[in-house]
Amino acid sequence: MAMGFMFWTAAACPCFIGQEWDPATNRLRGALPFNDPCQCTSVELGGVNVIRPQRPFRASYFDAPLQLPEIRMRLNCSVYVCSDEEPLGMQDGRIKDEQITASSYYQNKLNHGPAKARLDTQAYASAWCYDRHRETDPDHPWIQVEFNSEVYVTGLVTQARGGDIHNTNHQRVTRYRVTHSRDGQSWDHVTGADSMSEEFTGNSIDQSYDHQVTARFGTVLRTRFLRILPTDWKGHCSMRFEVLGCQNLTV
């Protein structure tokens, strides 16, 4: 006979986490049976429920270490609050050229390379422009920043390619997703309230070349790598951007 373990929680106090079968994925996953897991002030280890659950309330399923900050980040709970949000260094050069990489850039020309993705870059080609003819990058371009150490990121500011004389088709990224990583190997998507990968609005065709669009994430990311994955663009996949975040936190 299979043994099951009871989980219980109390509002705004310790929550008991266990494992049980997730009906959506049909596998054993972490389970936090609490209507609003973001209210948990701590997480304690429960047991394993091998019986398929039937309950009148929703359980939150996830794959994460048994540490409250990690769990709350996976559930889009705000773990940290930036006390003083600021640009993290794309525009002013604190982020060095070698810290900015991309899946490809147009014909391997440095004047179209990832270092040209800095906000307000004006000199030709006045943006990072991906190479759509590269076999390694036909449909899934990306550009990323590697910080010198872990930072706290709150959002992005994006621009289209600048108005240089070669930008006759108003190149810009109109939609994009974001992933982040602490080690450059394991990546997580920035997700929305539904826990699905969120797609952000970039720059539209009716805006000026230098118009800035700010997108803020639903939670503060503690990360070392930040990767932008354009999903739609006009003219050509070209963009400039700044990363927003902070150094000082309130918890």
Rank of each mutant, 00 (worst) to 15 (best):
V145M: 00
S195D: 12
H211L: 06
L221T: 02
T101F: 02
T136Q: 07
K96L: 04
E86G: 07
G245E: 00
V178H: 00
R224N: 04
A123M: 09
T41A: 10
C13H: 10
T223L: 15
T168F: 14
Q39W: 15
V190L: 05
G89L: 03
M239P: 11
I71G: 08
P141S: 01
R52H: 11
L28D: 07
I165W: 11
E44I: 15
G113A: 11
G218C: 06
V173C: 02
N35H: 15
F241V: 04
K116D: 07
L229D: 09
G245F: 03
E86K: 10
L119Y: 05
P14N: 04
P138N: 02
G218E: 04
T154K: 02
V220R: 00
R172W: 00
P14C: 09
G18S: 04
T168V: 12
V145I: 00
W142R: 00
Y209A: 04
R224L: 07
L88Y: 03
S60E: 15
T223W: 15
L249I: 10
Q19G: 11
D92R: 11
Q39K: 13
E198C: 14
A11E: 10
D210S: 12
R29H: 00
F62A: 14
D232T: 12
A117P: 06
H170W: 14
R94M: 09
R227Y: 08
T191H: 04
L221V: 08
R175V: 08
P14T: 05
N49A: 08
L229Y: 06
K234P: 13
M6W: 11
L28R: 03
R216E: 09
N148Q: 09
L66M: 10
K96W: 03
W187K: 00
A123K: 09
E198D: 13
Q107G: 11
P37W: 05
L88P: 04
T174I: 05
M239K: 00
L119K: 05
Y176I: 12
W128G: 03
V173K: 05
R55Q: 12
V251F: 14
Q212S: 10
L226R: 04
P65Y: 12
R72Q: 13
E70A: 14
Q99A: 01
P33S: 12
W187G: 00
Q91P: 10
E198K: 13
H189E: 14
I71L: 12
I100S: 02
Q247H: 07
T179K: 09
